[in-house]
């Protein structure tokens, strides 16, 4: 694997994620449309929107931090993506995952959101601040089951590096962590849906109440950047869950397959449930998923 190929591999990393991510969002809007008994926009609609926004001649800005907000968001998301191996063969599309571990990835996921929150802050729109506050409060709820799940994983496989977890899940369906530590997987699913913005937990960006929350003041190229980073973020979560619980992907096709299966579960949840208030979301998260996770933890400790 010459350095030339390595460079191409690294540069391609985010674009693959961007493309697949945007595609999934397009498909998602289609499927939800169908569930609502309407046709829904074309699958590539998201990509079209993003490129339209990039073409826009000007965008309003409220200052340096406002300008930097979306940029930090993308940076955070892409950096986090680099530390999650897309493919498990250790040669192609592995990013920098060998230099970081699960805890680093967990914190990098939040870095992007905080950067954007600073931009929203300077934007000065009360809706933006409300969106950010609700997002962070919701995060308190989501983080617990997720962290319990990864603790169980780390305890189970006695390692914190994602690549090693993938290797230990090699060899057939029954070795997947999904079945080895099923309760932890279920608990982590709840927080997965929350982080993906599935309906019961999508209060921060809820259009009816806070006018698309943090992204309210951003327009033109800033909105484009935010939409693309949201796409990448979606795909990032999917690959992480696949790596952790479904034994990673040998090649791109398997990766797309597994991630799509996982993505479909998000659709089912988001199109059925109505929206939680923030405190309901946190309360719900601390009640059922956490208890499931704790049971998994106790089982793990007993083993």
């Amino acid at each position: 694997m010459s350095t030339g190929m390595r460079i191409v591999d690294i540069i391609a990393y985010p674009f693959i994620a961007f493309l697949i991510g945007m595609l999934y969002m397009g498909i998602a809007r289609n499927i939800i449309g169908r569930i609502h008994r309407r046709w829904g926009p074309p699958v590539l609609q998201n990509l079209i929107d993003v490129f339209k926004l990039y073409r826009k001649r000007e965008a309003g800005s409220h200052g340096v931090m406002f300008h930097l907000g979306p940029i930090i968001m993308v940076t955070g998301v892409v950096t986090c993506l680099y530390f999650i191996p897309m493919l498990s063969d250790g040669r192609w599309l592995k990013g920098f995952s060998f230099d970081g571990d699960l805890i680093l990835v967990t914190y990098l996921m939040v870095l992007g959101a905080l950067g954007m929150a600073l931009g929203v802050g300077q934007g000065g729109v009360p809706f933006g601040v409300m969106g950010v506050t609700r997002g962070l409060t919701r995060l308190i709820g989501l983080e617990i089951p997720y962290f319990i799940a990864i603790i169980v994983l780390m305890a189970h496989y006695n390692t914190a590096s994602i690549n090693k977890i993938i290797e230990l899940q090699a060899g057939g369906l029954s070795n997947w962590a999904m079945f080895k530590v099923p309760l932890a997987f279920i608990a982590s699913l709840f927080s997965f849906w929350g982080m993906m913005g599935a309906s019961p937990f999508d209060i921060p960006g809820a259009p009816q109440e806070v006018a698309s929350g943090p992204a309210t003041e951003f327009g033109g190229k800033y909105l484009a950047l935010m939409m693309s980073s949201r796409g990448i973020f979606g795909f990032l979560k999917l690959t992480l869950w696949v790596d952790l619980f479904m034994g990673g992907a040998a090649n791109l096709l398997i990766l797309v397959g597994k991630t799509f299966v996982l993505f479909v579960t998000v659709l089912f949840v988001t199109s059925v449930y109505s929206r939680f208030k923030v405190e309901q979301a946190v309360d719900f998260m601390w009640r059922y998923p956490t208890i499931i996770g704790l049971i998994a933890l106790v089982i793990e400790m007993v083993r």
Binding site: E58, G60, H62
Partner: peptide, 11 residues
Amino acid sequence: KSKRLHRLDIY
């Protein structure tokens, strides 16, 4: 270059 908006010119 993005246009500098007034502080109160918000959504």
